[in-house]
Design a protein around this nucleic acid. Structure first.
Length: 111
DNA sequence: TGATTGACCAACT
DNA sequence: CAGTTGGCCAATC
């Protein structure tokens, strides 16, 4: 797309998250150029259900590594199960060793 | 069409 | 230390 919107950029970044890795809304937003748009990342995930390509929104958590949007996956346990299914341990809705599983698009993906 | 909200983050009071 | 405010873009009322 010659002029991709914020949403489309978010989708592409989230899709490029490798298996067993997670990232934060702020990291994506900051990578796109605006840390204040972190809310839009979450909103984009909400819209990701209507996209043709699947978006691993369960790999996206807030800056604390907490599963803030777990309720939006159709159930409060779905997101946790998905992460654990990828080898990521989740305790009390919080990712264990979040820093180790953290995938920074600005560093890994960069361009 | 204007106002409000939304899965956030950071700074200020 | 905790509560409030500003900021960002897009969708819904």
């Amino acid at each position: 797309m010659a002029d991709p919107s914020f949403f489309e950029k978010v989708y592409e970044v989230v899709r490029q998250i490798p298996y067993g890795r997670v990232t934060s809304y702020g990291a994506i937003a900051s990578y796109l150029g605006s840390a204040g748009s972190s809310r839009m990342v979450g909103w984009a995930m909400n819209s990701s259900h209507g996209t043709e390509t699947y978006v691993p929104a369960h790999r996206v958590v807030n800056r604390n590594g907490v599963l803030t949007g777990k309720h939006h996956f159709g159930g409060p346990n779905v997101m946790k199960q998905l992460l654990e299914s990828e080898g990521i341990k989740v305790n009390n809705d919080q990712i264990v060793d979040f820093k180790k599983h953290f995938w920074n698009p600005a560093t890994e993906l960069k361009y």
